[in-house]
């Protein structure tokens, strides 16, 4: 699982985003223990300090919590995870609409094409 990191943006923010998306998609399930900071840093080829910063921020947000010295755990609070999922979807939809509008489609045309895609082309 390669970590896709854009060097033009602060890395710790991107690490947070990737960890959040893994939690949302269930790679790290609710209540599950996350790999250690060092393991994740090596996997992502980033500085352990940066990974630590990202995880501290996620801890602050409540997405994960630390259990004394036994590492970080994904929150058991499903509401928080759902909020994250909703926020992520909002961003994706915003970007989708922006791109489609810049191609010249109106809102109704976008709705039609979206429904058409879901009915006919979406892979199950």
């Amino acid at each position: 699982m390669a970590w896709k990191i854009d060097q033009n943006r602060p890395i710790y923010i991107q690490l947070m985003e990737i960890l959040e998306s893994r939690i949302i998609s269930g790679v790290y399930k609710s209540g599950e223990k996350l790999p250690s900071v060092r393991t994740l840093a090596t996997e992502a080829s980033v500085n352990p300090n940066t990974m630590q910063k990202a995880m501290s921020e996620l801890d602050r947000k409540g997405v994960i919590h630390s259990n004394r010295t036994s590492g970080y755990f994904v929150t058991e609070n499903l509401e928080i995870i759902n909020t994250l999922r909703e926020e992520a979807s909002k961003n994706i939809i915003e970007v989708f609409f922006m791109n489609m509008s810049s191609l010249g489609f109106s809102d109704d045309e976008i709705k039609t094409r979206l429904r058409h895609y879901i009915d006919n082309y979406k892979k199950v």
């Binding site: 854009d6 060097q7 943006r9 602060p10 890395i11 923010i13 910063k53």
Partner: peptide, 14 residues
């Protein structure tokens, strides 16, 4: 490095 990325909106290489 992250401060520099935030301030200058680019990678350290750039």
């Amino acid at each position: 490095t992250d401060n520099l990325r935030t301030t200058h909106q680019k990678s350290i290489d750039a």
